[in-house]
Design a protein around this nucleic acid. Structure first.
Length: 482
RNA sequence: GCCUCAUUAGCUCAGUCGGUUAGAGCGGCGGACUGUUAAUCCGUAGGUCUAAGGUUCAAGUCCUUAAUGAGGCGCCA
């Protein structure tokens, strides 16, 4: 007999038919009622067994966590709390689960405990919901770009370019640590390495992405990204997934529109396709915040927050405008900022970004036209503008409440001379990036793109608070478990 | 990397001013009940108080160092 998934049964409710269901025991109440979950939905299916007729040896093996199959008739539930249930005529045990040694318990477990048992945490309702939503978001991103005529470009994971300055890199090598080959100058001789040169894991697919965009028009990447920064926060991972669209014949305005459309599209997709899981995550968040003082709780529920992002345009303002707002803000005047906002030209601290997003505007904010000094070499140099103290670039950062920077992007500097001059100023070796500069020598065009931290998006949409809880097996300083 | 806080039963936590035998809930185990919904009821076992050193007549409690975890900051997506 063909097994039916629980999500299918709940959707179609084929009352009166014989069904076979397979899943894991989430509860066994009253020696009679099995709550069965197979991962197809957060909802459990109630399987009713007749303990007087059932083999006692089987009955005894129906434990929390055990994998079982149950065959029987699907009926309208005789009890409250669910619409349908299966009256089992036969129960088969596939895998026992000894409660004396099984780390999980049918109770609330802390996220910290589950993080240490990441190999088992998919089995909890919260994490199953997180990973179903994560899947839906990944799918929605591909759908969004595909429907708009973007091509999914796989940029390399191993890269020889060390010139981006996007962060510390993980070295990739097959050279031995003991007796590492040296050249005459005493330096490590990378000509003997696998690639005959020094290589690292990628910190960004952008430069390669730009190459694709110069022929395919609109491309995006969606792949693993590695940063060897010693970052210990709830927003950073050493291995994370990044989405990087790159669009030919586009300027900063187009770039902002694309990013805002994409974020709203995937949030709408999640609301429409993950309603049950989002409700579960919303309830979890409410429960978690009960232990917090009133003023630290969220003003909006999770689903309200997501709808709010859909219903409101993101605020767009320049760095220069943001500095003015911050300078004149109450916390700045009263000395409440740890880093007082004094002048134009320094980077914003996360407390400043939080103030703008969470207190001043209370909605997502796109900050643009940052000082050139604090941004990457490839960003397009703006024309001087009245009231702006120094040179700026066509950069944009999208700031989300609770997350901070979720998107960072820019219009790219397509003018060869200006790009090369900027690289010289920033001591970036042009010869190493000659392939990149070729895009500016042959058929250059205005273009723009951005990077979206996928886990930060998942974090925002699931209402989880630690990025280590929205990726299956998080990698961060001191931890590469599982 | 810096700052703050934490570490007591399988899990979540309480433990008073340093003072006799370290407690609770959940979970486990045994039993009862049998239309339950975190099932309920009765009984029961379970502890190197993170580690090492120190102060003291006496340390879960005070001090030092370390490990691990959490949160904040920096770096950023």
């Amino acid at each position: 007999m063909q097994r039916t998934k629980i999500a299918e049964l709940i959707r179609t409710e084929p009352v009166g038919t014989e069904v076979l269901v397979k899943g894991w025991v989430k509860a066994f109440r009253n020696n009679q009622f099995i709550a069965l979950n197979d991962g197809s939905t957060g909802s459990n299916l109630q399987v009713v067994v007749d303990f007087e007729k059932m083999d006692a040896a089987i009955l005894d093996r129906i434990k929390f966590g055990a994998a079982i199959g149950a065959r029987g008739t699907l009926i309208e539930s005789q009890g409250k709390g669910q619409r349908i249930e299966v009256v089992a005529s036969e129960v088969e045990i596939y895998g026992d689960c000894n409660p004396e040694v099984y780390p999980l318990q049918p109770k609330k477990q802390t996220l910290e405990f589950l993080r240490e048992n990441a190999h088992l945490r998919f089995r909890t309702a919260t994490f199953a919901a997180v990973f179903r939503v994560r899947h839906a978001l990944a799918f929605a991103i591909h759908k969004f770009f595909n429907d708009r005529g973007f091509y999914y470009l796989h940029t390399p994971i191993i890269t020889a370019s060390d010139a981006e300055g996007a962060g510390e890199m993980f070295r990739v090598t097959t050279l031995p640590f003991d007796g590492t080959p040296r050249n005459e100058a005493g330096e490590v001789d990378f000509t003997q390495d696998f690639f005959k040169r020094s290589t690292n894991l990628t910190v960004s697919g952008q430069l390669e992405g730009e190459l694709g965009a110069m022929a395919l028009g609109d491309i995006y990447t969606f792949g693993p990204t590695f940063r060897a920064e010693n970052s210990n926060t709830t927003r950073h991972l050493a291995e994370f997934w990044m989405i990087e669209p790159e669009v030919a014949f586009a300027d900063l305005e187009d770039n902002m529109n694309l990013a805002e459309d994409m974020l709203q599209y995937v949030i709408r997709y999640a609301l429409e396709n993950c309603a049950d899981d989002l409700k579960l995550l919303e309830d979890r968040l409410i429960e978690e915040e009960k232990s917090k003082p009133q003023d630290q709780r969220s003003e909006l529920s999770l689903i309200e927050k997501l709808r709010f992002v859909l219903d409101n345009q993101f605020v767009r303002l320049t760095y220069t405008e943001a500095i003015d707002i911050l300078k004149n803000s109450n916390p700045n005047k009263k000395g409440k900022f740890q880093y007082p906002v004094e002048g134009w030209g320094t980077d914003l601290q996360s407390e400043h970004e939080r103030y703008l997003v969470e207190k001043h505007f209370k909605k997502p904010v796109i900050l643009t036209n940052y000082p050139a000094e604090i941004k990457a070499f490839y960003m397009r140099q703006d024309d001087p503008k009245e009231g702006v103290p120094g040179p700026t670039v066509s950069a944009m950062d999208i700031l989300f409440p609770g997350i901070g920077e979720i998107v960072g992007g820019s219009q790219r500097e397509e003018r060869y001379d200006r790009l090369v001059r900027r690289m010289e100023e920033m001591h970036i070796p042009a010869e190493e990036l000659s392939w990149y500069l070729d895009t500016r020598r042959f058929g250059a065009c205005p273009h723009a793109g951005f990077g979206l931290g996928f886990e930060r998006l998942v974090l925002f949409i699931t209402g989880m608070t630690n990025i280590r809880d929205v990726i299956a097996f998080p990698r961060y300083p001191g931890n590469a478990e599982f």
